[in-house]
Amino acid sequence: MMNKQRNSNDILTKPKVCYFCLNNVQIIDYKDTQLLRKFLSSYSKIVPRKRSAVCSAHQRELANAIKRARVMALLPFTTK
């Protein structure tokens, strides 16, 4: 109970760091759908930076990778 509250509070206030900077990823592979899916919303839209805390440089690369994956039918353009 306490733990859960702590978590949600965490999410709202915590200054987060770009996932790709954190993991030292230079090139985002469009074939890595498992990873890319984490940055899609439940409607398969690209999650905005505001929400995922990805830095702008990586967000650009990420968006390109997702779009490539979509063309290849590796990822959906939309769901529902």
């Binding site: 978590n7 949600s8 965490d10 999410i11 760091v17 996932y19 954190l22 984490k38 919303s41 439940s42 999650v47 929400r51 995922s52």
Partner: peptide
Amino acid sequence: PRLKLEDLDEKLDEIL
């Protein structure tokens, strides 16, 4: 961090 990212996504999806 990794787990949190997923949690976060889920929660935000719920909210949004």
